[in-house]
Amino acid sequence: MTVPWSGNRIPWTLMVFLAALWVPWLGSRYDTFLGTQIAIDALFAVSLNLLLGTTGLVSFGHVAYFGIGAYICGILMKTYGVPFALALPAAWLGAAGFALVFGFFCVRLTKIYFAMLTLAFSQIAWAICFKWNGVTGGDQGLPDVPYPDLDWMSALPGLDGLRVSDRFYLLTLALVAVSLAALRRIIGSPFGRMLTAIRENPERAAFIGVNVRRYELAAFVVAGGFAGLAGALFGIFNRGVFADYLYWTKSAEVMIMAILGGMEHFWGPVVGAATLVMLNQQITSYTEYWPFVLGVILLVLLFAFPGGIVGGLVAGVNWLRRRGGGRQSA
């Protein structure tokens, strides 16, 4: 958007999506497992980045909406036997609703105070989920959330031989792809441009007629809704919903995904999520000290590569182009 980058002529995103569709046939069961996790985390991280990278709001409590979505979907499906097709939109709306209520108070503050208030609300949500035995299962959580009924997929050509987990992977992939497309569209819209204006200069944005708080709240609600969607998918994928999902350290983890990939670019958090999930799998097979490794990665990022992976790549490509005699348009 703001950085010259003409890689768009090749439809990379479409190619990645099409390649990902083949995982159940070409990869192992383990690959499907990783793929599902990456897709869900990617959506979660991109939803956060609508606040972080687009609007310039440091939300340290985004995990609340992920967890709320997971609980709403899990409770509806497990306790009340509601079908997935209704539970999922309910999770979206429920998480967005909570984001509206919490966000209403949070956007009254700015900068670090905003970050602290979002953190506070997420801890309140955690405390409620952790203690409300009757509804959320308290510290025991909500185990055995059922898989959605995916028998209808058998009717589709080529899908009848697949395992349930493979089908769920395909469903997740499709839902995440649609959500990402929607988020990209929102960011590229006039509304999205108002959000970038707020990020760049809230004072000036107000004096071109933008009601800054209201737009921030709208972004907060949209981001919360998609985080809830990611959470709902994660609850099913993980076969249960637990209060851990809302613990404050998870907010930091998703933030690390976003900046590892690069907050300045739409696809940055997707790259960050994929990198972190795969790295985690690799490193935990060698050592139990994954948090230590993550901490070191984070330090290196903060001090040496604040633009993240995509930011670094774009800078590299632009540098090569300038050296190569530049057909740069700028």
């Binding site: 569209r185 929102i186 590229g188 819209s189 006039p190 999205g192 441009r193 108002m194 970038t196 933008v210």
Partner: peptide
């Protein structure tokens, strides 16, 4: 352009392409 979009009340449009 951002100023024009805002002043002419397009800020609520979240689906068109801003360019």
């Amino acid at each position: 352009q951002a100023a024009l979009l805002s002043h002419r009340g397009c800020g609520r449009d979240f689906w068109s392409r801003s360019e």
